[in-house]
Simulated scan of single mutants.
Amino acid sequence: MNTNEFWALIGDAARDGGTPDAVAGRAVATLAKRDAAEIVGFEQHRRRVLDASYKVDLFGAAYLVNGGCSDEGFDAFRGWLMAQGREAFARAVGEPDSLAELPAVKRAALTGEELGSEKMLAVAVDAYREATGEEMPEEPATKRPSTDDFWDFDDEEEVRRRFPRLAALFNEAPAE
């Protein structure tokens, strides 16, 4: 499976809308119809996408949007972001403040809803189990980048500097 096929499958699953978990369910149903090697290829690509998106500023944006964020929470946030599609995902990785343009982020600013989808992270595992009746072969654990470059995500001034649009949405109070 290549990059275009990976994102096309997600895009097709998202076409009918719904929650990220609904997108994950449709992706599982589609992927489960493919052979085991393609399902494993999807999982390998998902891991590469997550590895490439483990960026300090995206983590900081997830922290702001969700009112805090752990490593697992950041994974779930990026699962949610995958369900938004290739373009939104790529823009957010390159410019996390672009998240402020997404309707779900605007809604979360008003409702306090936490954005995440663990089901998007498990699409290949669930599809493999459905297709083969077996568990997917274990892959080596993903290495986490160093957190040495993390900045203080609770520093309101730094948040406003890095994410002016997100900070405005989430009503970050001006410095006194």
Rank of each mutant, 00 (worst) to 15 (best):
V56D: 06
E156T: 06
P96K: 11
D35R: 05
V123P: 04
A92L: 07
E156R: 15
R144H: 12
L99H: 02
R15T: 07
A167I: 11
L64H: 01
W7H: 14
K143E: 14
K119M: 13
P137L: 01
L102T: 12
S117H: 02
E72H: 12
L9T: 04
R46S: 11
A131F: 06
L64W: 01
T3K: 11
G60A: 02
R86D: 09
L31T: 05
P103A: 05
N66V: 02
E130D: 11
E43K: 08
F163P: 08
G116C: 13
I10G: 07
D71S: 14
G17I: 13
D75I: 00
V49D: 08
D152K: 05
I39A: 00
R34D: 13
T19V: 05
P96L: 01
T147G: 11
E72T: 10
R34L: 04
G25P: 03
S53M: 08
R165Y: 03
R15F: 11
N4F: 03
E114K: 15
D12E: 15
A8I: 11
F150V: 05
R160W: 02
A104H: 07
E139N: 09
V40C: 10
K55F: 04
D149A: 15
A173G: 13
A29K: 14
S70A: 12
G85N: 00
D57I: 02
F74A: 09
P96H: 00
D35N: 14
P174F: 01
S117Q: 08
V49E: 13
G25L: 09
G25M: 11
M1Y: 02
E38V: 04
W151Y: 13
D97A: 02
P103F: 00
L31R: 12
F150A: 10
E158Q: 11
L166C: 12
E158N: 03
A88R: 14
D154E: 15
E5G: 12
D71R: 14
G73L: 10
S98T: 06
M82N: 01
T3I: 05
A29M: 05
A32C: 00
V28S: 01
L121P: 10
A88P: 00
E157S: 15
P140S: 15
V125Q: 13
G60I: 00
S70K: 07
V93K: 01
F6P: 09
Q44P: 03
R161K: 15
R129N: 03
D97G: 07
A76W: 00
V23Y: 06
V40W: 00
D155F: 12
Q84Y: 04
